[in-house]
Amino acid sequence: MTEAAAPAPVATVTRPRHTLWGDAWTRLRRNRLAIAGGSVIIVVALAAIFSPLITPYGFADQDLNSIMLGPTLAHPLGTDELGRDVLARLLYGARTSLAVGVFTQIIVVLIGLPLGAIAGAVGGRLDNMLMRFVDVMYAFPDILLIILLRAVFGGSIFMIFLAIGLVAWVNIARLTRGQVMSLKGRDFITAARVMGGSQRYVMLRHLVPNSLGPIIVVLTFNVPRAIFAEAALSYIGIGVRPPTPSWGAMIRDGYDLIFANSNLVLFPALSVGVLMLAFTFLGDGLRDALDPRLRR
């Protein structure tokens, strides 16, 4: 009978516990295509890392006695016009493609995320200026910019990352800004300000972490675009320098010999296609998994 004065008894929650990321993972796991895509990416990454264990050949090893072979036991995917093993070149080429995919996105995040977050959080004139700059970058033709950058800064592989990254960050900047602006009006941001949190604190602790979901999705979709951009650059001859293999360069080289040995185009083209699809499926799955509206 002394019940009334005691704090409210609290019913135990009997449902299984979920964190937000845990929830997203559960949803992602149920998406077969996304899991297939993720598996393909992991297999390709492992193959790229451990390529010396998979094939005895180096990517530049020439065997002039076996030129333009079809698939054989010694060369499962055949050889090219210089007697180089196609499988070995594909595996080492995967390194280039994945590196392009990952490093460009790192550059994209490093530039786009802070600029977008600052523009969104601070607002006003600074926002206006930053966003007009983004508009200009957005309007500039991508390939032209990349060619310019390559012409000015020369041709190391890092310059390719930089070039592709420099044209791709605007999307992330815009997205981050939009996310931050929509979060800024939410009560938990006001709460942090009422506690005396500085603008920097609010941005790093609340605004950015809560914007990450859609950003991760867009980054995942960006990876195949970067891979394709590198392939396209290599195809027009301003990509990685020979003999470093890249799938795009392999397609270009094989293209001249397509009637002699179509495998030289087929395998790298298939690889590009499969990896791009894998990232797209994964991105699709992530978008569904991270969408808070689907929470139940």
Binding site: L20, F188, A192, H206
Partner: peptide, 29 residues
């Protein structure tokens, strides 16, 4: 001087645990 909000769901960062939410004013200060 503090504030209590109307919508308790909106006013809590969904990525914070209860301990983080209650402790946040103390970190900030």
């Amino acid at each position: 001087m503090q504030l209590i909000f109307q919508d308790p769901g909106e006013s809590l960062d969904p990525r914070f645990t209860a301990a983080d939410i209650v402790g946040e004013p103390m970190w900030i200060q």
